[in-house]
Nucleic acid binder design. Structure first.
Lengths: 110, 110
DNA sequence: GACATGTGTCAGGGTTGATTGACAGGTGCC
DNA sequence: GGCACCTGTCAATCAACCCTGACACATGTC
């Protein structure tokens, strides 16, 4: 596992809304509109958070067609297991390629 | 461990600079100015990141006096161990008290 | 006194993230 | 056609985060 991957996962999990989304999807897979109603979040906002979680590989979504022909995007949690200790963080930091935009700007300016 | 505590730790670790800080302090304890030089970061910026890490309980700092009388703040990593799985995240989410500022604003407005 | 080292903090500006409301498109049903 | 449900995205706004430069204070040395 690369440091960038762990970084993305940690950044995605470090948000109360996204933690609650993981909790909700752990109980059962769900589609966007219903999940938004259940956890009391606007649909565009939930959509954004799900994108971040999916980009981090923590949830997976699949567009399915219900029996009555409606398109419904179902999400479920991806099985993951990260062990966080000073050691694992240090190892991951060594493989970090992610330079911040600010650093990139500086390098390009030279 | 409370959900808020885990949330703060994850938010603190989900940043490349802070991951590198953890990595550097894992090798040896260090004081702020020297650490800033070694990892190529401005001292005020490092100071801010160290504050966040300390607030999350991931590092501990102690103000010591060197032999020549100068005050030096040493930091070292605190031993921690978090196991991240859908289950642990879901459990932590259940004990979350952290409402976002936006939510707090709404509640106060009612 | 000037200089080097260490500490901390502050205001300002730039970038990213969070959030909402409105819009577009699709299907099936009455 | 109108309504109910589903999907997506967009602009605009506000908060949060990130970052720098400059300041103030302390100590020891030349």
């Amino acid at each position: 596992m690369s440091g960038d991957e762990l970084l993305q996962a940690l950044a995605a999990l470090g948000n109360p809304h996204r933690m609650r989304i993981i909790a909700a999807l752990t109980e059962r897979r769900n589609y966007v509109s219903r999940l938004a109603r259940e956890i009391g979040m606007s649909r565009p906002l939930l959509h954004m958070h799900l994108q971040r979680l999916e980009a981090a590989g923590l949830v997976v979504g699949s567009l399915e067609l219900s029996e009555d022909g409606k398109a419904m995007k179902f999400f479920e949690v991806a099985p993951f297991m990260y062990e966080l200790t000073p050691r694992t963080i240090a190892d991951a930091a060594r493989t970090l390629t992610a330079t911040t935009d600010r650093q990139r700007q500086k390098e390009e300016a030279q």
